[in-house]
């Protein structure tokens, strides 16, 4: 037992290394926050429940009997090799897969115990409660301001004060305010790649959703922009439940509280990130994490 505890401690130190590296240039205040972060352990309040979920692209089944519960106001990472169905699951949560012809599902996904396929729930209402950030940043060809307030505008909000407040709050939440506040009327396409992705995050949180889905948000970004967005996730999880799909194991280890490992459309393992990266239950998980395949 003691041996194992020691191991745990060593692992814990190991795990903190990248984070320390990451934060060595941060200010005092931010360092405090990060210290706090590692100490406080949030309670596990289930928010998203995936129940016996199967998904089919025509004749091809992409997800097999997935049962998964994701906690509120924490970061859940979904990892796995390409084609394992992790994006499919993410896009099922806000019913983005409805757009596909010939695709159908079996089973259920519940948010706060309400099924997302509930007949009484408009899909647009569902999506207003769930923000999404895509792999490839996709700002609209509009001004920065109009990009951020887009979700409010489509919800019928045209009050200038409300919109202004939302822009400032969202850009601050996305750590873009300082860079963008003087150029809100410029085209969003004039931003750099990392800024564009943060703008997409600002756009996703403008309407104060409960859940933020992130589909490999950093895969097209350089390390500095990636670091900024990871730092952002720490800030955002105070207010939002975040589900992130990532290819990058280190990223999952750094940002996620819980991690789900998928392989060939099946959920292999789900658990606390710390535990999963140190002592995975399944051999497949261990092999994937240690880079023996995938």
């Amino acid at each position: 037992m003691t041996e194992k505890d020691d191991d745990m401690e060593i692992m814990e130190q190991e795990r903190q290394k990248p984070r320390e590296r990451h934060f060595r240039q941060k200010t005092e205040e931010q360092a405090d926050i990060s210290a706090e972060r590692t100490e406080v352990k949030e309670p596990f309040n289930p928010l998203i429940e995936v129940v016996n979920y199967n998904f089919f692209y025509g004749a091809t089944q992409a997800l097999f009997d997935v049962d998964l519960t994701m906690p509120e106001k924490q970061v859940t990472a979904i990892i796995g090799p390409s084609g394992c169905g992790k994006s499919t699951l993410l896009r099922s949560i806000n019913r983005m897969n409805d757009l596909l012809d010939n695709a159908y599902h079996r089973g259920d996904i519940r948010i706060r115990e309400q099924s997302i396929y509930d007949a009484g729930l408009e899909v647009t209402e569902l999506r207003k409660r769930i923000g999404m950030v895509f792999q490839k940043s996709n700002p609209f060809p509009k001004t920065i301001y109009e990009n951020v307030v887009y979700s409010l505008r489509v919800a019928g909000q045209n009050n200038k004060t409300v919109l202004n407040e939302a822009v400032e709050r969202s850009l601050k939440a996305a750590a873009l305010w300082d860079e963008a506040k003087d150029r809100l009327d410029e085209s969003a396409l004039s931003l750099s790649g990392g800024q564009m992705q943060r703008l997409c995050i600002a756009r996703a949180v403008a309407n104060r959703p409960e859940i933020l889905l992130m589909d490999e948000p950093c895969s097209a970004l350089d390390p500095i922009a990636t670091a900024k967005i990871e730092e952002l996730m720490y800030q955002l999880k105070k207010d939002y439940t975040i589900v992130i799909v990532t290819h990058n194991m280190q990223q999952a280890a750094r940002v996620a509280d819980h991690t789900a490992f998928f392989y060939m459309g099946r959920l292999i393992e789900f658990g606390e990130t710390k535990k999963m990266f140190m002592s995975p239950d399944k051999k497949q998980t261990e092999e994937y994490i240690t880079g023996r395949f995938g």
Binding site: R127, F134, N138, P141, Y150, A204
Partner: peptide, 25 residues
């Protein structure tokens, strides 16, 4: 691009709103 439509839909826009505000321009 598909990404733009998806971005709009993910913001809670209906299909017509997406066409009107994003796709047509």
């Amino acid at each position: 691009p598909r990404g733009m439509r998806e971005g709009s839909l993910a913001c809670g826009a209906s299909k017509w709103q997406t066409i009107q505000r994003i796709v047509l321009p």
